[in-house]
Write a protein that binds this DNA or RNA. Structure first.
Length: 464
RNA sequence: GUCCCCAUCGUCUAGCCUGGUCCAGGACACCGGCCUUUCACGCCGGCGACAGGGGUUCAAAUCCCCUUGGGGACGCCA
């Protein structure tokens, strides 16, 4: 058994989107699972649309997701010589030929075929002619006219296509550059790729590529086509469904662990398990368990996973991730210790880092700038409640150890003396100190706020 | 239009290959309850699917065929 080699081969025409990230993930997982190699190849043969920025963006996304590739990325744009050498080889063997048909002529052929209810394709006009290289001349594969081309798809099983359905695909454009199908086959062969796991949109290309392998006399790699990702309306995922780019999810406050876990479970399964650490994923992954049908991208489930990983993360880690977000919200240069004290209060209350950052600001705002919910004030800061709060203020001011347990003790003592239940003062106190009716636990909130700030807020509320 | 692929709860899926243990299991969401100082978390419970029709078989979610529905591909893009 030759060692497993997988690859991810994006074309740098934009950011890395959800679908691409998932195929990259599956390739990475399989390579890591097998102790094999995971390569990265940038398919930039289209010089018009490929950009350096897009390449950077893709690499950034891969790094964020933790999909480490082996060796240096390979750029197809630097390998044109190699492709042309192979095309010449095919030309010499008579497996390829020059074709002088103009794009317009070919389009006419397609139109004709379409009109006759056949599959639109090139009709092989130059197949038996001896066209010589020159301007406007391309090189085409001399594909078999009859028979079937079949291959074993790791996820779909056997796939067969009549060769009559295929046409003589262009290998070299009139400008001398190689086409996608040729470059893919040459590279996968040269890179010794053993498993080609890619999106479903490539199934139709596979028989053509198989033909190329056969023309070269090379062994086929294993192919596996993973189903598409759909939007909630079951249409192919697109921008109108919302965020597509992996890095947009980073901006929205999703953790890479959640994204990886979610993407892995979208189209792949391992019994009933839902939560997978990176290590569990690499251990459990097998392409056999890839699903065959398209899957809808469900943000709610992503949210659930993200909430899960937020709960699991250490406060220090989250504080580090939150700092730049809070800086953007107008709270720069925060003391990490302060942030680390706030974070635990929101770990069970946040679906995203963005939500968490937003929630944290409440602790960072000075008493004077705190906003009070008028309705809540009217409802809970009754004269009776105010009397209790006034009395409580004395105790709070005199408390030497302003910690949750001590605060709880202090409050309980007061309740006992006053002969009331916690319920009576809980909401008034909460509103007074937070301005709202919903917040983390009171004792913890007071502790994190600190004595000085708590008293300041209490005073302000009482004065309103 | 032609070809290829797909089809289990609203969604992600287990089961299908190797028919019976499945009046179909898990998870998200939703609904209800418990816990409770609010909001969450957590726990418990509920709702909810084998697309339809034919076969094959003692027996089909599982095998075969058709229909329907969905997706993809038909570039000198990748």
């Amino acid at each position: 058994m030759s060692p497993v080699v997988t690859r991810f081969a994006p074309s740098p025409t934009g950011f890395l989107h959800i679908g691409g990230a998932r195929t990259a993930l599956f390739n990475w997982l399989y390579a890591r699972n097998q102790g094999g190699t995971f390569l990265l190849r940038i398919e930039d043969t289209d010089r018009e649309r490929s950009t350096r920025e897009a390449t950077e963006a893709i690499l950034e996304s891969m790094k964020w997701l933790g999909l480490s590739w082996d060796g240096e990325p390979i750029f197809q744009s630097q390998r044109f010589e190699i492709y042309n050498r192979y095309i010449d080889q095919l030309l010499e063997k008579g497996q390829a030929y020059y074709c002088s048909c103009s794009p317009e002529q070919v389009e006419a052929m397609r139109e004709k075929a379409r009109a006759e209810g056949r599959k639109p394709k090139y009709d092989g006009n130059c197949r038996e002619k001896t066209v010589t290289p020159g301007p406007g001349v391309v090189v085409r594969l001399k594909a078999p006219l009859h028979g079937k081309t079949l291959y074993q798809d790791v996820v779909k099983g056997p796939v067969a296509v009549d060769n009559a359905e295929l046409d003589d695909l262009i290998l070299r454009r009139s400008d001398g550059s190689p086409t996608y199908n040729l470059a893919v086959v040459v590279d996968d062969h040269e890179m010794a790729v053993t498993h080609v796991i890619r999106g479903d949109d490539h199934v139709a290309n596979t028989p053509r590529q198989v033909l190329l392998y056969q023309a070269f006399g090379w062994d086929l790699p294993a192919f596996g086509h993973v189903p598409m990702i759909l939007g909630p309306d079951k249409q192919k995922l697109s921008k109108r469904h919302g965020a597509l780019s992996v890095m947009e999810y980073e901006k929205m406050g999703y953790l890479p662990e959640a994204m990886v876990n979610y993407l892995a479970r979208l189209g792949w399964s391992h019994g009933d398990q839902e939560i997978f650490s990176r290590q569990e994923l690499t251990q459990a992954f097998s392409p056999e368990n890839l699903g065959r049908s398209a899957a809808v991208f469900d943000t709610q489930k992503l949210d659930w996973l993200n909430a899960h990983y937020i709960k699991e993360a250490s406060p220090a880690t989250l504080a580090g991730l939150l700092a730049p977000r809070l800086a953007d919200l107008g709270f720069p240069d925060l003391d990490p210790k302060v942030l680390e004290a706030i974070v635990p209060l929101y770990q069970t209350r946040s679906k995203t880092l963005a939500e968490m950052a937003q929630a944290c600001t409440f602790f960072l705002i000075p008493a004077a700038a705190l906003e009070y919910d008028q309705e809540a004030m009217a409802k809970f800061l009754t004269p009776e409640a105010r009397a209790h709060l006034q009395a409580l203020r004395q105790g709070l001011a005199g408390l030497a150890d302003f910690k949750a347990t001590a605060l709880e003790g202090l409050l309980n003592t007061y309740l006992e003396k006053a002969g009331i239940k916690f319920k009576i003062i809980a909401q008034p106190l909460r509103v007074a100190v937070t301005g709202k009716t919903a917040s983390p636990g009171l004792h913890e909130t007071l502790e994190v706020l600190g004595q000085e700030e708590s008293l300041a807020r209490l005073d302000r509320a009482l004065a309103l």
